[in-house]
């Protein structure tokens, strides 16, 4: 990157590192951090809406919908989330291809499952065999986002369901006494008050979500774990201008520090958010704020 980097062997330690850390592959490594942040930014709202739907379903008065909601909530507790990640990525991929196969190639007469193979017609392949590399990568990332959203949506549904149940019942009875319909009670009374009860659980969930992002690696996305392994491995002078030994330990130490910093910042932000949400609520926290003068810090 810098002009003095043309001959790395002559450089001192500082110069060598400033050249080494700005090579092209290192920029891929830095970009992969944004991939992680992008995943979090997309997944969190999607998972939250999945969770909201799940919690609404679990409260439904229509029995099959309620069973579905409760099943969705219960299933993640018993099974390791990593098993879901491994499962959904293949299952979703095959599901999409199967649907496309049925739509695009209706006159295909061979079975899709032939022994150990899963065969669909070539125009139903996702992504198409002829599409460029970045589409393959985006598709992989997209599958990862859906998988994360499904798994964390179930966790969020659990938290939101608990939050909805924690809203004091007299509040809902009062709403009913004022003649509000079920729908109005839900949107105008229950939902605004639910967040303060759900927030501790949701903060916890955000932390868990952050800590689950390295699993992207298992889903085949070129994320920070992938690059840390690639870049840290022993490099011989034959293939690179910057030979070094096995530095994977240091790369992973860096990732460790990155995550520690990230969770610490999240903790501080969530604490602030909690103060804001507590404002004006009929809880001990809200009462304490009221007595202290009600200032939002």
């Amino acid at each position: 990157m810098f002009s003095f980097c043309s001959d790395p062997e002559t450089l001192g330690t500082v110069g060598w590192f400033s050249c080494y850390l700005t090579t092209g592959v290192h920029f891929s490594f830095y970009i992969s951090f944004f991939k992680v942040l992008l995943l979090l930014a997309i997944t969190a709202p999607v998972a939250l809406s999945f969770g909201f739907l799940g919690a609404m379903a679990a409260r439904s008065h229509f029995a099959p919908l309620r069973w579905l909601g409760k099943f969705y909530i219960a299933i993640v507790r018993g099974i390791p989330d990593i098993a879901f990640f491994m499962f959904f990525v293949i299952a979703l991929d095959q599901g999409f291809e199967w649907v496309r196969h049925k739509v695009l190639c209706p006159d295909w007469d061979q079975p899709i499952r032939q022994g150990a193979d899963f065969l669909v017609c070539s125009s139903a392949k996702l992504p198409l065999g002829s599409s460029p590399e970045w589409i393959h990568q985006t598709y992989g990332f997209f599958l990862a986002v859906i998988t994360f959203a499904i798994v964390f949506g179930a966790f969020a549904a659990n938290v939101l369901y608990g939050g909805m149940r924690a809203v004091p019942h007299p509040q809902l009875e009062t709403a009913e006494a004022y003649g509000m319909s079920r729908r109005q009670t839900f949107w105008r009374v229950l939902v605004p008050q639910m967040w303060v009860y759900a927030l501790p659980g949701l903060s916890n969930l955000w932390m868990v979500l952050i800590k689950a992002t390295p699993l992207l690696f298992l889903l085949g996305v070129e994320d920070i774990v992938y690059w840390a392994r690639e870049l840290g491995g022993t490099k011989t002078p034959k293939f690179t201008a910057y030979p070094h030994g096995d530095w994977r330990m240091w790369y992973f130490l860096f990732l460790l520090v990155f995550y520690l910093g990230f969770t610490r910042i999240s903790e501080i932000v969530l604490e602030r958010l909690m103060v804001r949400f507590t404002h004006g609520q009929a809880t001990t926290g809200g009462e304490k704020q009221r007595k202290a003068g009600g200032a939002i810090t």
């Binding site: 800590k211 689950a212 699993l215 330990m249 995550y259 520690l260 610490r264």
Partner: peptide, 22 residues
């Protein structure tokens, strides 16, 4: 407690493995 609760277990495994290897 902060070190082990604040970082992903997955990264801890990786780091520990390469640390032990070194």
């Amino acid at each position: 407690i902060f070190l082990f609760r604040g970082s992903p277990l997955f990264i801890q495994f990786f780091f520990a493995y390469f640390l032990f290897l070194n």
